[in-house]
Simulated assay, not measured.
Amino acid sequence: MSEELPPVGKTAVGVAGLRALESGRPDRLFEDPYAGAFFHAGRAIFEGHPNPDRRLGMVFAQQVAVRTRFFDDFVAGGTQTVLLAAGLDARAFRLDWADGARVYEIDLPDVLAFKETVLTEQGARPRCERTAVPADLREDWVTALKNAGFDPGRPTVWVAEGLLVYLGREEAERLLTDVTALSAPGSRISFEHRPDGENDGLLAQARNVGAEVTALWRGGLGSDAPEWLSAHGWQPETVTVAELSVRYGREPMDNTRGGFVTATR
C-alpha cells in the first residue's frame, strides 16, 4: 500500500514516525494517537536503508515536534480551515474544534487514499466536518476545493505545513496567489520561513544525511516570504523555532534562524 505513495508523500510517513515518537514522550508537546499507525503502515518504505532515514529523523525531530504544536495552536478557533498538503497529520481527528467547524484536507490522491485506509482501520472519527480534497497543488486545486463546498466568503485559516520547500518559486507564488484570491477579510495563513534561505544550518545538516529527501527540495519563496505576503495584502509576522522551543520548554535549536511566518488579511 505505501509503495504506491509518490516521493513527496513518502516523506509524510517519516514525519508521522517523528510525531509518534513525540507523542510517546512524558513531556510531549502534542498527542497524535494515529501517527504510529501511519508509520507502521508505511514502514516498508524504509526497509533496506534505515540508517540514513534514522539520522535524518534525528535532525528534524525537534523541528517537527515544535512545528506540529505551533500549527495545532494556529488553527485553534478556526471555523473554516484548509490544510494544504495535509499529509498524514490527523488534526481533524485529534484536536478540539469549534462547533460547526469545517476542515478541508488537500493532498495528492494516493496520499489521501493511504490516509483514509489507515484511519478507517483505526476506527477514527473526525471531531469536525472534514472533507478530503484529492488534488495536485501545482495544478487546478481551486476548482476541486470549491466543488467540495469551500466558501470563499468566510474567513479561512490556511496551513501550508512542510509544503513550500517542495515547490519552485513560480509554483509557490501561484499557489499563494490563489490562496489570496480565496481569502476573505480576517483570513489567516501560516507556513515555514527560513530567512537564511539555502544557507539555513538545519537544511545544510539535513543534506548531509538525507540526500534522497533533500533532492526533492526546490526552495519555495526562499527568504523573502514576509515581503511577498506584505506586497499582496497580508500583514505578516514571524517567529523562530528557537523562540518556540523555549516557550514549549525545550532546548533552543542553535543551527537555524528559521521558523514560521503567519499573516492576516
Rank of each mutant, 00 (worst) to 15 (best):
C128Y: 03
D99H: 14
E139N: 15
G123A: 03
G123K: 04
G100L: 08
A85P: 11
D99L: 11
A132I: 00
G123V: 11
L95W: 05
L108R: 11
D96H: 15
L84P: 11
R138Q: 15
D89Y: 12
R91D: 04
D96L: 12
R125Y: 09
A90P: 11
A86V: 05
R130Y: 01
R125K: 13
A135M: 14
V118C: 03
L84R: 08
V103M: 04
R127E: 02
L84V: 12
A124Q: 00
L137N: 13
L95H: 02
A101P: 01
E139M: 11
P134F: 02
E116S: 14
A113G: 10
P109A: 08
P109H: 08
D99P: 09
R130T: 00
R94F: 03
A98T: 13
E105H: 06
A86K: 00
P109V: 05
G87T: 06
R127D: 00
E116P: 10
A98Y: 07
V103F: 08
A135R: 08
A132W: 02
A132E: 06
T117R: 15
G87S: 09
Q122H: 06
F93R: 02
D107W: 13
V103E: 01
V118S: 08
D140V: 04
R130S: 12
T131D: 02
R102P: 00
D99I: 13
D110Y: 07
L88R: 01
Q122M: 15
D136Q: 11
A90H: 01
E139Q: 15
E129A: 14
V103N: 03
D107T: 15
P134M: 07
A124W: 06
G87I: 06
E129N: 09
T131S: 07
R130L: 09
